[in-house]
Amino acid sequence: MSSSVKKTFTGTPPAALAAKVRMLGPTMTRSMQRVAETVAGDPAGCAVLTVTGLAERTGTSEATVVRTARTLGYPGYRDLRLALAGLAAQQESGAAPAVTADIAVDDPLPEVIVKLAREEQQCLADTAAALDAAQLDAAVSALASARRVDVYGVGASNLVAQDLAQKLLRIGLSAHAHADPHLAMTGAVQLRAGDAAVAVTHSGRTLDVIEPLRTAFDRGATTVAITGRPDGEIAQYADHVLTTSPARESELRPAAMSSRTSQLLVVDCLFIGVAQRTYDTAAPALSASYEALAHRHTPRP
């Protein structure tokens, strides 16, 4: 396992607390989940509690409270209390967004529009708040200097993989997106040190994405995972893990658009970062691609 997988989140700002609870909650033990859900649900009330007081309120132990604080990205419980006070102040001022309610089968379409729009806003805000800038910076450096970049994704995630490969290709990088698992493996065995591979999988356990990334990892390429489950198997073979907001799927919304929206935000962050690092070559390449495609547009009357 790479050292980056063992890395814990640090320096989490107050605005990211609710996002962290939603994103990391499924990976916690039940007792830790109780602590996390309690502090996110009542930050003002929990901010005044000692570690013993919060343990008593949640029916857990002091050790569980401390472990939860560290899992959420705080060095200790004191730091978590400071974040809770900040979150409480945001909620009082109306700055903290509310979680969107699920869509019901009898919701009128105007209400569906509002709910979906709020859902997308929430997922983007959660992803931005929880995205590890140090991991992103390292991933950008790897892509910017790579001899070749392979991107893996299947199903809806392949649309995101294709988007990343296309963006990198237009600024002069050698980038390929593989949806077919056989082609992905064929490409992965050709990678070596100095190359990079990016896996896009919301669940973190899609075998057709895990296997080529593991092969790329074993071959010495720098590997990046864009996933909603940083505890998923994919993280074992990723030098850098970029976490997206978990999709709030329901009976009416399997493979919710929000998961792809979060992934596309990370893709855009990667692309902008790479374009900045390689601007001297990226700008002319982008200009050339625009010119090459200009004649393909329908002329205006």
Rank of each mutant, 00 (worst) to 15 (best):
D106R: 13
D106V: 10
D106L: 11
D106K: 10
P108K: 14
P108I: 14
P108M: 09
L109M: 11
L109W: 10
L109E: 08
L109P: 02
P110R: 09
E111H: 07
E111Y: 03
E111G: 01
E111T: 12
V112A: 01
I113R: 03
I113P: 00
I113T: 02
I113M: 04
V114L: 07
V114N: 01
K115T: 03
L116I: 12
L116E: 06
A117T: 06
R118E: 06
E119R: 13
Q121T: 09
Q121E: 11
Q121V: 09
Q121A: 09
Q122F: 09
Q122Y: 11
C123L: 08
C123V: 13
C123R: 09
L124G: 02
A125D: 09
A125Q: 12
D126C: 07
D126R: 12
T127Y: 02
A130D: 11
A130G: 13
A130L: 15
A130V: 15
L131H: 08
L131M: 11
L131T: 11
L131Q: 10
D132C: 12
A133K: 15
A133G: 04
A134I: 15
A134F: 10
Q135R: 15
Q135S: 15
Q135D: 15
Q135V: 14
L136V: 14
L136K: 14
L136R: 14
A138D: 13
A138E: 15
A139I: 09
A139G: 03
A139N: 05
V140W: 04
S141W: 04
S141T: 12
A142P: 01
A144D: 07
A144F: 07
S145E: 15
S145I: 10
S145A: 14
S145F: 05
A146Y: 04
R147N: 08
R147E: 08
R148V: 09
V149L: 02
V149F: 01
V149G: 00
V149H: 01
D150M: 09
V151T: 04
V151R: 04
V151L: 02
V151G: 00
G153D: 02
G153T: 03
